[in-house]
Design a protein around this nucleic acid. Structure first.
Length: 477
RNA sequence: GUCCCCGUCGUCUAGGGGUCUAGGACACCGGGUUUUCAUCUCGGCAGCAGGGGUUCGAAUCCCCUCGGGGAUGCCA
């Protein structure tokens, strides 16, 4: 079994394409199949090398494993379509020679008018150049007239195939929109044409791709037939859509994998979420190792309907991974986010960093959340935000600040942890929310965060004292 | 316009004629734990798009309508 992922390098790896890649990867791992990466770069306006590089990086980051690619090579290369033009040329010549394709000299205006006419009269579109003889075609070419090459759609045929996800699909040839371009006027071949050539030449057995390609499939099958090539099995995955049920785009939030990486999503969580979208396990388990995911996965249990991409659930899932990851490893992952967030860790030993992370990881859903909590332990003073400030200005907070300030002077490094909070409680007679909320604000400058009892030892005596003094100065006039 | 695909809680889904008073997860709401927030835990709210059939019986099968998505000449 051989499957493929064939991105076009026209931007960053989109989350929808990432899902296709993940599914292909899961299938390949499950069936011990080859996974081929092919770069579909025939859109010369939009394809860029940088895009190809970033897509490959994102795939690697997600842990996708492939067996053939442009950089790795393989027995069926080259794996970049722009490097295969001589192959396509051969097939194009063959098609023109056997009447399967023809040169079309129509202008855009001609075609537009003809199509409009066809729609208006509710009859299939017929191309003007469809019946040009070879001689007439040659003559126009020699006159220097611009042309495209078109596939001549046979009349009265039915194209049907069994889609592994959608089931039996069938199209009548007169409904696929008429003769279609396979080579542009600039000589570049078009996706719909070469995709099937490459799939068969690369011995792809199962084409697993997005549903947006479903209506293109009959065209590709027709080309295969005309060329005497075998047809692969197809599996069209339902699309990923936004919460407004529309195609996922920028306005739905972040849609490219590199941005998820930047925000601090773990590749394991992304793969878990993407791999599980569209189906469910029998037992209902959702947080799974990749091995488990592969074990339970089957292309046949993917549902048929489009799925809304749920950012909230992905976040939750990512948080689960953060909470359960090996402490040393997750610390390594957090550190770059801390450095980006402006924290200087050079004076802090590794053990202390790990202790802090072990305490605050529960508050993080994405790695970048860590910057909200690290200041509690590393900065001398954490400037309270507006809400925290208004809490600190309350009378009951004032009591606490006053008592804390009196007490801290009598306490030392060795006993402040066990005596400070109990002492404040006793003297102020505050308890519950009225006690702990102001305390939290006082010690951390925020209204939420890690457990106070555990945080205090990590904050230390000096910082605690400074913060109390700071708040006394500021709020206790 | 035409063709193709799809339609179970807000979201992802389980369920494929009786075991469905429709199950789970995220989100949301409430209780408990935490002498605070979060975490964790327990509970609750909430759905078969609509209408016709078929059947003793339909979320499950068929038809229609509606809704959404996709394709339809130089994107992939």
């Amino acid at each position: 079994m051989r499957v493929r992922f064939a991105p076009s390098p026209t931007g960053f790896l989109h989350i929808g394409n990432a899902r296709t890649a993940v599914i292909n990867h899961l299938v390949a791992q499950k069936e011990n199949a080859d996974l081929i990466i092919r770069i579909e770069d025939t859109d010369k306006e939009r394809s860029t090398k940088e895009s190809e590089i970033s897509i490959m990086e994102d795939l690697k980051w997600m842990g996708i494993k492939w067996t053939e690619s442009p950089e790795m090579g393989g027995d069926y290369g080259p794996y970049r379509q722009t490097e295969r033009f001589d192959i396509y040329k051969e097939y194009t010549d063959k098609l023109i020679a056997n009447g399967g394709a023809f040169r079309c000299f129509c202008t855009r205006e001609d075609v537009e008018a003809d199509k409009e006419d066809a729609v208006k009269n509710n009859k299939p579109f017929m191309d003007r150049c469809r019946n040009l003889s070879t001689e007439e075609q040659e003559k126009l070419v020699s006159q220097g007239k611009e042309f495209t090459v078109k596939f001549k759609v046979p009349e009265g045929e039915t194209i049907s195939f069994n889609d592994l996800i959608k089931g039996d699909i069938s199209f009548k040839s007169e409904h696929i929109g008429g003769d279609f371009i396979i080579v542009r006027s600039d000589g570049f071949p078009v996706y719909n044409y070469i995709v099937i050539i490459d799939d068969t030449l690369m011995k792809i057995t199962h084409v697993i791709r997005g549903e947006d390609h479903l209506s293109n499939t009959p065209k590709q099958i027709l080309i295969a037939r005309a060329l005497g090539l075998p047809e692969p099995q197809y599996a069209h995955m339902p699309l990923l859509i936004g919460d407004d049920k529309k195609k996922l785009s920028k306005r739905h939030g972040i849609t490219s994998v590199d941005l998820y990486k930047k925000e601090g999503y773990l590749p394991e969580a992304l793969v878990n979420y993407l791999g599980l979208l569209g189906w469910a396990t029998e037992s209902g388990e959702e947080i799974m190792t990749q091995e488990r995911l592969i074990e339970l996965f089957s292309i046949s249990n993917i549902g048929k309907s489009a799925a809304v991409f749920d950012f909230r659930k992905l976040r939750w899932m990512n948080g689960q991974y953060i909470k359960n990851y090996d402490l040393k490893e997750i610390t390594d992952m957090f550190i770059p986010y801390l450095e980006d967030g402006g924290f200087d860790l050079s004076g802090t030993d590794r053990e202390r960093i790990e202790s802090i992370i072990s305490l605050v990881r529960g508050n993080c859903e994405v790695l970048s959340d860590i910057v909200n909590y690290m200041g509690i332990f590393l900065y001398e003073i954490n400037e309270p935000d507006e809400k925290t400030e208004s809490l600190l200005k309350e009378d009951y907070s004032g009591d606490i600040i006053k008592i804390a300030s009196e007490l801290i002077g009598c306490l030392s490094e060795s006993d402040f942890i066990e005596k400070l909070i109990p002492g404040i409680k006793e003297k102020t007679e505050h308890k519950g929310k009225k006690l702990f909320h102001p305390l939290r604000a006082l010690f951390t400058g925020a209204l939420s965060g890690p457990e106070l009892d555990l945080a205090l030892p990590l904050i230390g005596y000096d910082k605690t004292k400074k913060r109390i003094e700071y708040c006394r100065e500021k709020y206790l006039k």
